[in-house]
Design a protein around this nucleic acid. Structure first.
Lengths: 205, 205, 205, 205
DNA sequence: AATGAATGAGGGTTCATTCAT
DNA sequence: AATGAATGAACCCTCATTCAT
């Protein structure tokens, strides 16, 4: 997953960009080869076909996402608010930094052949579970007051996912500011109320 | 838009479903004809080609969405919270009732040929403006306290849009309940605080 | 099977010749289209693919062969020698008149996909049975003296089949003479001895 | 032809089996390399290409056949019946023991490039001549009574050749029995009648 | 002696579309 | 009003082969 033969990187990158721009079904394997600057045959030397490219991209995208999440969650403590902040930050950073990976991840499940669906769905379910578990624990501990934990979870995820569709890295909004806002919004959505031993410092990150 | 020849309806319906399931690029015009139960020639008799079908579908989807919004906004008064509730309700009902239209609307801009982009983008911008105007007015009037009106707007829209991807009409959650929750979540996101002289029952639809 | 759309005939004819000359595996579908004088797409309009062409050719070849056999056997009486003569004549005429059909029939079983094998093998078995039944009855009735009926049957069939590989219609040997010789050879192979009302013809080995 | 580098044997064997199973045109050089358990490059290190492999296989097959024939003919005396028996035995044993070689020999002339055709045809002609000369001498000497020597020759050859297509080494019929039957059939076909002054034990092998 | 990498040509098939009727 | 026939371009992929190492 980390070190691969030379041709791979350029090919996967090109495929990722094409898939993200046009969609898997509308992308021709020749477009990919041309964008990668390799011959059609070279592409087939490294990958068995278009579908395998998609699978490689999706697997890689999932791997990158989850390792980013794990790292952030490890840094966060036991506090549900801190954990929610961590996962939102990971997700937002991932969506803004890797919009191609994100958009493929979010829209090409339908292009997977049956034999690859299971793994994809397991990964997708795990991504969902990360959010759900945190929110449910926050609700149980009484710090997230939302009456609709599942819909709140969906709202938080949808909001984070959408970042991949509009955020422009070089724009007026820095990535750090973006993260700060989305963490704040997420805590608002779950109706976070700190347990307040002494001073509640409410919505600040 | 209202009264059309008989063949049209079945063809557009078939095209809409195919585009929604596979994506425009991955859908073949033969698949559409077959699904509609008409011959390939019949399809070309009614429509000039695949692109025209997409345009017809997008236009129709936009029309249906906006007329639903206008109706709801007309019923709502001047109160930003009421208006936000109205537009969220319209959007959620549209997404849950017409998932195919919604998903095409939300993902096939890239499949439009240049000459049709302008109208699509105008419509898209109008949809955005509907939300933005309401939220901005709520902020100006001091009933929406969110510090990030634009991000809140994106969150509300993303949340509503996502409904088209997961909601199952016959499932445990009725459409009315769904709407109630999403209106509530939207008001939470914009941090709605009623102006409160006499307590106007805040989260009610 | 008898009357088909216009394009069919030329396409099947071209495919048959190409398959016979180069073999199924070495024949390109473009060669067939070119030989038939139609476009590649026209070919696919009439036939689903290369395999379907092969199946159509094999089915047609079997049909033509069997109807020729049935006709001849119907004309022949109950006498095994007459029947053997009839089937040898049918087979030899078929091989000499339709060498392409014959050679494909005799060599392209391996090119059939599994789903078409059963029918092919049933037909092949029936062709074998025609010879076997006649020879076995001749042996049982005491007019075919061969001690190896099964090997005699194989020899007769192999001899007839080989005609497709060498006989030249316009050559020195007329088709009628060819038939006469092969009938004679077949009767020799099964060691035919007529039942001899009075004198039993001495030439016994 | 006798002692070759190690890689050769496995490669030629694999090529022979593939060619026999699928035909030259339908066999890919990758299939051969894989079956031989060597890399594609290794194959090209030993052989210049697919065509050269076919040529090597055909030459080897011819060599093996002719040396078997020569040996048998050398053991046989001057008697045409004995000689026919010898050549039939050689051919049948070859067809049953080396079905792959046999079937390639009998069906891949068409796959040869022009520059290799001449040698192939010379070999093929020699194989034919072996049978023809013996039969013609038998006819001239009056021991083969067949009125159609050439057709008898074709029948005998076709019968022997077909063995490669149906005989199963481990089956009910031993190779020796097979040979005995085919020699007997061949003598029947040429209508062998021993010259008979002192009874030279006719059909004995 | 042996191989991983790469290629251009061609494989079978499907595409959106047109046209004569 | 409606369709069967036909097309050329493009599709994904595999081919036999070469070459630098």
């Amino acid at each position: 997953m980390s070190t691969r033969p030379p041709g791979h990187a350029a090919i996967v990158k090109a495929a990722r960009e094409e898939f993200a721009e046009r969609g898997y079904g509308a992308t021709s394997i020749r477009d990919i080869a041309q964008r990668a600057g390799v011959s059609l045959s070279a592409l087939y030397y490294y990958y068995k076909g278009k579908q395998e490219l998609l699978v490689a991209i999706l697997d890689d995208a999932h791997d990158a996402y989850f390792s980013s999440c794990q790292e952030a969650l490890a840094r966060a403590g036991e506090d549900p608010a801190e954990q929610l902040a961590a996962i939102v930050e990971s997700t937002v950073r991932y969506r803004s930094t890797h919009p191609s990976k994100s958009n493929i991840l979010l829209s090409e499940e339908r292009s997977l052949q049956p034999e690859h669906l299971e793994r994809y769905r397991a990964n997708h379910a795990m991504a969902t579970r990360q959010f759900r578990d945190i929110i449910e624990r926050g609700v149980k501990e009484g710090v997230f007051l939302t009456p609709y934990p599942d819909d709140a979870r969906r709202a938080v995820m949808a909001m984070c996912n959408a970042v991949a569709q509009w955020y422009e890295p070089g724009g007026v909004l820095s990535e750090d500011d973006l993260v700060e806002r989305y963490v704040s919004l997420a805590l608002t959505i779950v109706e976070y109320r700190p347990r307040a031993p002494r001073r509640p410092v409410p919505t600040s990150l």
